[in-house]
Design a protein around this nucleic acid. Structure first.
Length: 376
RNA sequence: GGAAAUGUUGAGCAAUUGGUUGGCUCACCUGACUGUAAAUCAGGUCUGUAAAAAGCAUGUAGGUUCAAAUCCUACCAUUUCCA
């Protein structure tokens, strides 16, 4: 993976760059739609490409390991071929499931014992095993196996967990030397900064992560319930330490406003389930604020879903029609809303890129943050 | 004209057949959702209140009883059957 920075913003830490991978270029800042189980829920691959124009999507190691399972993915020739997606893919390592499935799993120094949420069977994920699985999946970018700590998190636990994540990182890196790529193209490995909401831990972790000298770096353990201001404070601290010339990925973030604020702090890559999950639950994001399409007030509003017409669905269908689809629980409603939200997120990061290059990013960002804070 | 059955919230049902329903499902209204165990979850929908307190409610009007959605009487409405 090669990362070229095209422009640095003068009034913030924002940057615009290009990541080049085996499956194509990624223009940063970028939002990456989440496709946990080999599908971005409710959205066709051709819609992701032709309408939404996503440069890269995510997959999830834990979920793909459970289903369809490794032998099938290997026979398919990797996830790209399996799901017919020829652009870049990034996989999460299963580290988030250490957090989201806490209560059914056991964390030890050696690794994590998961109880399958599907059938209750036991599965042991070590850093080494996560690397092996991600080799089989064949993502262009793949993540270190970490522990995503919850919020709030006691200082001592956060510290112990961070050090364990660091030890796991060393194991990931040394295992990768013995675990070559499977499909003949480069896979880029990303280590993850942890440290909860503690500045000293975040600094320590960022320094350690930077010292491993990987091609790109990630920040995890945020957007787990902490106030946005705390999240910004942490990314700020970490971005000042992580190397400037390498991509920075803030995992799991976030709202449109979160994304713009974090771009300003120096983040290049984002992913979040919010645009797709909230879409399925009837919430639309727009440049002028969010919409709960299930609200009665849209009943007879025949104006386009979004006047801006970023996606074709925005002008093809009215708010009243989309509300009708939600009220009648028709699948198409969720699909339309998902396409709209993803198209909007991708538009937002593309706009950010253009304004960074044009040199007026901060002015634009501040205007957008106020605008998008509305409830329509 | 006669006989029988049934009346509980916007809808559909339930309430140990005399012992606290303002219970359940749907519908409706509102909110939540951040590296996806989520096409999910939560709250509200008699009056009243910011929220409570409190009050009124099981077709209508009476009655029996410590106590009635439940038992009795009359009336009203609906449905079915017989003429």
């Amino acid at each position: 993976m090669i990362f070229n920075i095209k422009a640095f913003d003068k009034s913030s830490s924002a940057r615009a760059g290009t990541m080049t991978t085996a499956h194509g270029d990624i223009q940063t800042p970028i939002f990456m739609p989440v496709g946990t189980q080999g599908t971005v829920k409710g959205v066709h691959q051709h819609e992701l490409k032709d309408d939404i124009n996503a440069d890269i999507i995510l997959g999830n190691t834990y979920h793909l390991y459970l289903r369809p399972q490794m032998p099938i993915l290997e026979k398919a020739g990797g996830l790209h071929k399996f799901m017919n997606w020829d652009r870049p893919i990034l996989t999460d390592s299963g580290g988030y499931q250490v957090y989201s499935l806490a209560g059914t799993n056991k964390i030890k120094e050696e690794g994590v014992n998961f109880k399958s949420h599907i059938d209750g069977s036991s599965h042991f994920f070590s850093p080494e095993f996560s690397m092996d699985v991600q080799r089989v999946i064949g993502a262009d970018i793949f993540m270190a196996f970490d522990e995503c700590t919850p919020y709030p998190c006691e200082y001592n636990y956060a510290k112990r967990s961070m050090h364990m994540t660091h030890r796991w990182l060393k194991r990931c890196i040394s295992h990768l030397e013995k675990s070559p790529t499977k499909y003949g193209y480069e896979q880029t490995f990303m280590p993850i900064v942890q440290g909860s909401t503690y500045t000293d831990l975040r600094k320590m972790s960022a320094e350690f992560i930077a010292s491993t000298d990987q091609a790109a770096n990630a920040i995890g353990g945020l957007s787990v319930g902490e106030p946005a201001e705390e999240m910004y404070a942490m990314t700020d601290v970490v971005c000042q330490i992580l190397p400037k010339d390498k991509p920075r990925y803030l995992m799991g973030v976030g709202t449109p406003i979160n994304i713009l604020e974090n771009i300003a702090l120096g983040i290049d890559m984002f992913d979040c389930v919010m645009p797709t999950r909230n879409a399925r639950n009837g919430m639309l994001f727009t440049a002028y604020g969010s919409i709960n399409i299930k609200n009665k007030k849209w009943e007879d509003d025949f104006s386009p879903i979004d006047e801006m017409g970023i996606s074709y669905v925005d002008t093809a269908y009215s708010k009243a029609y989309l509300r009708h689809l939600f009220k009648t629980k028709e699948y198409l409603g969720k699909q339309i809303a998902s396409i709209h939200n993803l198209a909007f997120y991708l538009w937002l990061t593309r706009q950010a890129r253009e304004h960074i290059i044009a040199g007026d990013f901060t002015t634009w960002k501040n205007k957008m943050v106020i605008q998008m804070n509305n409830r329509l």
